[in-house]
């Protein structure tokens, strides 16, 4: 129950921060900082995959409805959520994931987090900017947008984890 409440609160928090703050921060060159993929990343590892996809869709479409992007965030986030179990399997620790351990940067270490979340965020950003432009002849501009936004988003996601997630003194969140 406690966990459901926590993730519901986070859902609202990520939604509001993205819509009210980050969508307004336009650094130019088509960049957009997106932190809400972190919400999908931080869901429990053992979560039902249908619930995972559904939550991704719900968060994405909520952000879309508040930023007039008509399904772009939803599409990108659902794609990322689909790849999450696959990437997690590929980068699983030798004895599997510990039950009830959140996969944040404190628990899993920088290397693991950089690889898994880096790949997932790359998939998300690339797909988002690809359908935003929806033209293959502008693929270079898509790449420019992706590669400029990616480090910004990733850095912000790291920062947010230091701010909102307590360092595990005795395990747990």
């Amino acid at each position: 129950m406690n966990k459901i409440l926590l993730h519901t609160l986070r859902f609202a928090l990520f939604l509001i921060i993205q819509v009210v703050v980050l969508n307004k921060v336009e650094l130019g060159a088509g960049t957009l900082m997106m932190i809400y993929p972190l919400y999908i990343m931080l869901l429990p590892v053992e979560i039902n995959v249908f619930l995972l996809l559904f939550l991704a869709f719900a968060l994405g479409i909520s952000i879309d409805s508040m930023s007039n992007t008509y399904g772009m965030h939803a599409s990108a986030l659902v794609l990322m959520a689909y790849f999450r179990p696959i990437i997690f399997k590929a980068f699983a620790p030798r004895d599997g994931y510990e039950i009830d351990l959140e996969v944040n940067v404190h628990n899993m270490g920088y290397r693991w987090f950089l690889r898994t979340f880096g790949i997932l965020l790359l998939i998300h950003h690339f797909w988002f900017f690809l359908i935003e432009l929806s033209r293959l002849d502008e693929i270079l501009y898509v790449l420019q947008k992706t590669l400029l936004s990616l480090p910004l988003s990733f850095g912000l996601c790291l920062l947010i984890q230091f701010l909102i997630i307590r360092r595990p003194a005795r395990g747990g969140v």
């Binding site: 996809l53 008509y70 399904g71 772009m72 939803a74 599409s75 659902v78 359908i131």
Partner: peptide, 20 residues
């Protein structure tokens, strides 16, 4: 799983191309 994914993706893309 793939079908559910395709369904959600389909909804999102349909919204994108009709609503805009």
């Amino acid at each position: 799983v793939l079908l559910f994914f395709a369904l959600l993706q389909g909804i999102a893309l349909t919204i994108l191309f009709t609503f805009s």
